[in-house]
Design a protein around this nucleic acid. Sequence first.
RNA 1: CCCACAGUGCUCACUU
Length: 420
Amino acid sequence: ASTFNTLFNGLLRLGNLGDAFHIAKEMYSNGFIPSYSSLMSLLRKSLNSGNLEDSFYILELMLRFDYFPEEHSLSLLVAGFCRAGRVHEAYFVLSVLLGKGFSPSVYSYNPILLGLCRSCRSSISLAVFGSFWKRGLYINEHTYAALIYGFCRERLYEEAYRVLDQMQVDGFRPNVVLYTTIIKFLCEDGKIEESLGVLNVMAAEACEPDLVTYNVILRALCCCDRILEASEFIRIMDEKGFSPDKFTYSALIGGLLKAGRVGHANELLLDILTRGCDMDVAICNIYFHGLCREYRSREAFSLVKDMMEKGFAPSNVTYNTILNGFCKEQNVEEALELFDCFEWVGSGPDSVSFNTVLSAACKQGNSSIIRRVLYRMEFEGVKLNAVACTSLVQHFCLVGRFSECFKLLDLMISDGITPT
RNA sequence: CCCACAGUGCUCACUU
């Protein structure tokens, strides 16, 4: 056993997690027991490296030795799965632990509730919450917040308000973040009056709105061309000592553009850009988008390159905007070539990047480009989503290839993609 | 003791 332990700890210290895990498994099959602290150390390192799979198996091995994980590590694993959209696995981990008599903390089960809510399964989330409640697990304001978030997102406001009431009955006070969440969903759903009502509730509850709250409301007001009310809010903000940030500006400009106030939007945009304090990507992207809308996408692209020389860091949205511009000008083939010219950030081109070119190719009926885009998506591991499927279905219907349409519909059903 | 959980802007098809 001491040989194994020495080896295990050495590998661990070297950061060779794979082999360390292997040794631990060997120990298990030979009837030796590694120490709790060394297995926890392995789990922590694995989690820090961001590998959920390995971490999962390490935890599984620990459970075979009847070791429970540290709360913090467990929450990292659970939250990691949830963030990756793998709520199922997170839930599985937690239920196994519950079955063994372990009592997880809010940090481990709140992410599951939120994960369920993010995937539009708020009712299930509520049921899970109910079962946790019955087991007597402690809950906190985030527990309620997750449910309220989910119900609002699914536009089930009655349910959301019910949870909000219950929360207060249970002795928790809703905070700014929670109220702002509700306000945001109401605004997105076009229920501005109701969202302003929530603002009044906040005032009654002595809960002060913050800059985020105001940014949400300003955007909503600008979107439906209620500029006077927006200016009134700006005055109030000023009175309260809030100074606008980059979110405020992009919310205002974006909202004005949505309302078709191109002139006002440009005025504000140029004002900010020429003042040129710190260049914000999102605000620059709005400008690039404006150029592209006027069929000046090449100009936009050279501008991006020039600005990069001066230290500007484009985002993937910047690149997607340029792609969209090229496609609008019917240069779809060239847009596809641009994929290799961009210095993509993070995990590379995303579904919007591909959808932009794919939908343009579908509109043109250019099956050669469609094939190449699909191939590349496969290669990059980007899955077809509702937007991509809709574009393709439309294209196949147009060219009379109905069998392909049905194949796509099958794929959508099996992948759980909701048609629009 | 610390650490780990929720809210805001910019880009894609359809719809209009």
